[in-house]
Amino acid sequence: MRIRVLGAGAGGGFPQWNCNCHNCRRIRSGEMRGLKRTQSSIAVSSDGRHWLLFNASPDIRAQLEAFPDIQPREGVRDTGIRAVLLIDSQIDHTTGLLMLRESTRPLDIYCSEMVRQDLSSGFPLFTMLEHYCKVNHHPVPLDGSGFEIPGIADLKVYTHALKSKAPPYSPHRHDPHPGDNIGVIVEQISTGRRLYYAPGLGEIEPHVGAAMAAADCVLVDGTFWQHDEMARAGICEKLALDMGHLPQSGEGGMIETLTTVAKGRKILIHINNTNPILDEDSPERKTLNEAGIEVAYDGLEINL
C-alpha cells in the first residue's frame, strides 16, 4: 500500500497568508529551519495508478501537480483519482472539490450522512457541483464495518465516528451528531497491512485506541502542541480541545497516547502554523524525535 501526503498543514497552511506569528514570520524570512506546508490531504493506492483521495483541500490543484503518479495517463482528460473520502465537512477538507469540477464523470464521494447534509445546505458544494460534473454520494458506516471501493483494488476501508464539532456553517453546529467527523482504517487485503488516519481527533475513545494499536502506521491529528496555543500566540482565546484537537503535550496528550498505545509507525499531520514542532531545531521537535514520532510534510511517501 502506498500513501502520499499531499498536504500536511492545518487550515490556512504554513505560512498562513495573513499570519505574522513566530513561525510564519521566521519561515518567510529564512530564520527557521523547516518546511512550508499546504492544507491537509492524503492519497492511498495499492497499485500506484488508482488512488483514493482523502479530503480535497483548497490547495488540491498544486498538490496534484506536484504528484505525477496521480496525473492523466490516458486520453485527453484523465485522472488517477477513482474516489474521494471526506472525513468531515470543514472548509480546509472540502473546498478543493470545486477544483475537481472539470471531471468528465460524476465524482464518487464517500462521506457520512452528516457531511452530506452540511455540503448540501450550510456549505452547498454538492448542490454547486450538480451544475458541473455532478456527485455520486456513497454513505459510509459509522460502526467500524468495512467496505471496498470499485476501481480501487486490494484495499478495504473501515470507518467509525469520532467525537467532534461540526463546522460553524453546519445546521447542527451546536448539536453534535455521530458522523460530524470520522476516523478511517485502510487495509491492504493481500497483506493485511493497515493505516489509521484521523487528522481531526479530540478524544481517544476505546475504538480509537484499538484502531491505533492494530495499525502498522498511525497518521493522526498534530494540530496543536499546547491546549492554549492560540492564546499564547496572541491570535485568539480558542482552546485546542474546544476546537476538536487533542494537543501533543501534557497528561493524556497525543505524545503520551502514541507512545503507550500505537505499536507501528507514528506520524502527525494537520499541523497548525502556530505549532512549535514546525521548527526542526525546536525542543518540542526534539521531544517528538526522542519519542519516535514523525511530523508529516508535503510529498511524504509511506509504503506499507
Rank of each mutant, 00 (worst) to 15 (best):
P178E: 05
G34W: 00
A66F: 05
G250N: 07
Y110F: 13
T38H: 02
F147W: 11
G234F: 03
G292T: 07
C19S: 07
T159M: 02
G13C: 04
C217S: 08
S41C: 12
Y158S: 12
H50I: 08
M114D: 11
Q117I: 08
M243F: 04
G80S: 10
V84S: 00
G253R: 10
P68A: 04
T159V: 14
M32F: 02
I255C: 09
Y158H: 12
H137V: 13
P141V: 12
E102P: 15
N20L: 06
N273W: 08
P199D: 03
P171N: 02
H137S: 04
R105C: 11
P176S: 05
A198R: 10
D88R: 01
D69M: 08
E65I: 04
V218R: 03
A166P: 09
G48D: 06
S45C: 03
E113S: 14
T274M: 13
Q226C: 08
L239Q: 12
P247T: 13
R73H: 12
A153H: 14
A233W: 04
D221R: 10
M99E: 15
Q248W: 00
S46M: 06
V186L: 09
R194E: 01
A166R: 08
F126E: 07
F14T: 05
H172C: 11
R2D: 05
N55Y: 02
T127Y: 02
H93A: 10
V84A: 03
H270R: 08
S121W: 04
F67D: 02
G244F: 03
T79D: 14
R77K: 14
S103G: 10
D228M: 07
G192I: 08
I293S: 06
G13Q: 04
P171M: 01
P206A: 00
S112R: 06
D143I: 02
M254Q: 14
I3A: 14
D228H: 12
A10L: 00
R26H: 01
H50F: 09
G234V: 05
L129S: 06
A83F: 11
G48W: 01
K165C: 10
G11D: 04
S103W: 12
E187L: 07
L125I: 15
A211E: 01
Y132I: 00
I87V: 15
V261M: 06
G12M: 05
V84T: 09
R49Y: 13
G299L: 09
I277H: 08
P139Q: 08
E65Y: 09
R33Y: 01
L98H: 13
I189C: 09
C19K: 00
R2G: 03
S121H: 05
T79I: 03
Q188W: 02
T223N: 13
L35N: 12
C19G: 00
N272A: 15
I189R: 12
Y132G: 01
Q90I: 04
L119D: 01
P141Q: 13
R25W: 03
N23M: 11
A233V: 05
G200W: 08
R37M: 06
M99D: 15
D154I: 02
V218N: 08
S120V: 01
G11Q: 03
L219I: 15
E237F: 06
Q248A: 12
T223R: 13
N181V: 14
A211H: 09
A198E: 02
V76Q: 13
R82S: 11
T257L: 13
P283H: 14
E205F: 05
G7L: 04
S103F: 13
